[in-house]
Amino acid sequence: MLLEVKGLETTFFTNDGKIPAVDHIDFKVYEGEILGIVGESGCGKSVTSLSIMGLVPNPPGKITSGEILLEGKDLTKLSEKEMRKIRGKDIAMIFQEPMTSLNPLYTIGNQLIEAIRIHNKWDKKKAANHAIEMMKLVGLRRAEELMKEYPHQLSGGMRQRVMIAMALACNPKLVIADEPTTALDVTIQAQIMKLMQDLNKKFNSAVLLITHDLGVVAEICERVIVMYSGQIVEEAPVMEIFKNPSHPYTRGLIQSVPDMREKKETLYSIPGAVPKPGSIKVGCRFAPRCEFARERCFNENPPIYDVSANHKARCFLLEKGEGTVYDKRAVES
C-alpha cells in the first residue's frame, strides 16, 4: 500500500465558525493504481488533495485530526522542512488551471529546471536535458525551443503538458491530479487523459484523480471514491459503481450524465445543492436532497456498510442487507 488516509479531518476556522471541509475520511491508494475521487464542487475533494500535500492554506485551514501515511510515514507529523522533501519528489501535483499554474514571468525551462534541481543535485545542463526529455515524453514537440518560451506563448493544453512533465520530473510515487482537464477543450481533455493513463503505466506512479466528471472516471480509473459534503459516501471498483451504485447520491450522479444513446427531454439532476460543510450536524448529509430519505435519515448519522468485499457505501438502505437503491425503488413502486 502506498498511501493510507485515516480519519482525516481538515477544518477551516472562519468568522462563521469552524467548517470541517473534510470530515473524517479514510481511503487507501495502492502502488501504480489510478484512483478517482468524484463529487460536486465544494464536497472537499480539493481540500483532501491539499491536505495530503500539506498545502492547506493556513490560516484559515488546518488538519485537525487523522493520519496520512505515505509508506507508513505519517505526513501530518512531519515538519515543513521534511514535508518539502516529499512534495514534488514522492508526491507531485497537477492543478486545475494550466493558464495560471505556471509563473508568467519565468520561462518554461526555468520552471522545469527548478523543479528538477530542488530534489536532485544536478548541474543546470543535466537538469535542462532531463527537462527536455520529460517534455518530449509528454508529447511536446519543439521541446528545446519551449524551454526559452514564457507560459503566455503556450496554449492551455501545452501548459498542462508542461505541468505534467513538471510533476513527473522527479519520478514521484503518487501524482495528485486535481481536475486536470476541467479548464481544457474537450478534444484536448481526451488527449491529456490518455497521456496520464500512458504515463501511469510507464512510470508506475499511482494517480489520485480528482474530478467531477464520471465519464473520465469510467475511462481511466480502477477504483473510485464518491465524496459528498466532506465525507466519503461510496467506494468501489469502477465497474461495480456503474453497475450497482449503492448510495442515492452516486446514483443521482450517474443519472445526470447525458447518454448519447438515449434522447431525453430533460436531463436528470439532483434537486438542491451541496450543503455547506458543517451546516448539517445531525443525520445523513444527503437526506435533504434524497428521494429515499425517511425520518431516521434526518436524526441519525448513517455508518459505512459493506455492499460487497471491496464496495462500501454510507446509507441506511444497506442495513440488514436490504438491498441496493435500485431494489428499494422496485419495492416501493
Binding site: M53, R84, A92, F95, L105
Partner: peptide, 26 residues
C-alpha cells in the same frame, strides 16, 4: 494567492525562494 505560488510550493521549493523569487517578481 496565485496558483503559480501553490505550484512552486508543490514542487517542494523553500518558502523563502517562493516568496523572493516567484512572488516578488510578479
Amino acid at each position: 494567492r496565485s496558483d503559480y505560488i501553490r505550484t512552486a510550493r508543490a514542487k517542494g521549493q523553500k518558502m523563502f525562494i517562493v516568496v523572493y523569487k516567484h512572488a516578488l517578481k510578479n
